[in-house]
Write a protein that binds this DNA or RNA. Sequence first.
DNA 1: CAAATAGTGTCTTTGAGACATTATGCG
DNA 2: CGCATAATGTCTCAAAGACACTATTTG
Lengths: 296, 296
Amino acid sequence: MDVLRDKNGLTEEEFLAAYRPGDYVRPSVAVDMVIFTAADREENNYRKVPEKELKLLLIQRGGHPYIGTWALPGGFVEPTETTEQAAERELKEETGVEDIYLEQLYTFSDPDRDPRMWVMSCSYLALTDSRALTVKAGDDAKRAEWFTVKLITENQQTDSFNDRVTRITDYRLELTSGEITLSAGVRHTFTRSAKGSENSFKITENNGLAFDHAKIITYAIERLRGKVEYTDIALNLVPEYFTLTELQQVYEIILGRQLIKAPFRRKYGVLAEPTDKTTSDAGHRPSRLFRRKWKT
Amino acid sequence: MDVLRDKNGLTEEEFLAAYRPGDYVRPSVAVDMVIFTAADREENNYRKVPEKELKLLLIQRGGHPYIGTWALPGGFVEPTETTEQAAERELKEETGVEDIYLEQLYTFSDPDRDPRMWVMSCSYLALTDSRALTVKAGDDAKRAEWFTVKLITENQQTDSFNDRVTRITDYRLELTSGEITLSAGVRHTFTRSAKGSENSFKITENNGLAFDHAKIITYAIERLRGKVEYTDIALNLVPEYFTLTELQQVYEIILGRQLIKAPFRRKYGVLAEPTDKTTSDAGHRPSRLFRRKWKT
DNA sequence: CAAATAGTGTCTTTGAGACATTATGCG
DNA sequence: CGCATAATGTCTCAAAGACACTATTTG
């Protein structure tokens, strides 16, 4: 078969050799990581089992814009890497965390999301077990902290008439780390009709979070909640050896509600493989330790 | 509270006024739309109900690279719009399709995915009913065609040992429109271990598709298959009035398998509201027409 | 009446939810 | 022995899968 030529008579090889990118404006593309872990809450009751909390890693901004506020770890994508590789690289550089579950979340592209210039953010959901809690600071002098996360649904309302449905969910996002408290209000509006559908997230209030990161965090928790019940994603939040009670606690902090033990074990027990190890010195009956058994 | 100043003594306002973007290289960002519809297959048997097919809109490339091959409709994002708005704009410009279901799919960012330059693609899944079949050509002279889509799982294999699972799925993608036949092989490799997880799509064979679009199409069908059973996304593929048999056919072409009528109606009948209209002149008992009833 | 599809009834099986009961190490 | 949690048993109910049966229009 002959080599194809375009309207200028060029072959593909000739075309590419002569190709010069146009001079139009391009966006910067950053990656932002929403990195969660599950940690034991400090428990002073003498023989109670500790409760778990969902924690999120944030970095305090040392320069404008949003100086002093807290931001998701992230950085710009370089021309020799994919966004996924950029996320892995930045995570390692900024926080020292490596070998972690990473899942592309959403690309946020509102032209005004960064007051400096046109920056899109390709966001990633990252999950790790609590070993990551010890690695806090990165290579530079930035201050990094793990914040306890709570996402409360303050109000949810659904209107429908004819072929059109609108669901408005008002979330309150609360982040605490020691004396530091951050909070935000995020409204998720979902509209669906014969003419298509639309999801929009809007920050209604913002205390101490940088950029549109309250949106991104809210979206990440929604994703996590949506996936935890039908995938094995929660296994990424438990350590190598864990008890079924710990695994249940992870489900409970993600879903934000209590679960009943017996059906939990029937349903999710298949995600865990028993070992011959047990806990001990707990002030009560020891419990069996399990290992992760990924779904195939 | 005092206005915060950075290490140069600037306020945020002063910083932004003085800010000049750096001179580093930025990617071009395009949107690509995977737009599906469900259409009746030509049926010559005299009183049979027509079967449905899943169709995908592709545009033939008129210039290098990949001249003559078929590509997803798409275009570059402009600095005043979100990727979603860019998708809506391009869809209207290139194909005349408007008011359509749009969902962000994935941002593909392999630096080599476009031989001309660094281009990321923020891809969108778009669904519409068969009215869209009549709008084919766009504003310019590009040739657009609806292709019948088949994604066949040729081979699937799961290996697991210890804490590590690898699942390899080999897909064959087949696209036909009249005399034109395109095909591709795509291998989806999924790896999960204690050190994280990884999804990768690789084109093993490519006949007539541009860029990495075989990957994007495969990913879109996977997403559609994954969501059809637990969301009401399939409603976007049926017209305003439809029979439950039509709705069932839509599920069948997406999932690629036959479903049993009674349980289908129990499960998905809640997505449809009966009207007092019926079909007629069909050579058999008429069937009731329904309207969409979105989940709330 | 026959062809073809529309629409429903019902049996079985599976699994989630709720709660109760038994088991066991530790102080 | 009693505290606290581990682990399992069982009843109920809801829903999916499979198949059979009835209903209705058109040629």
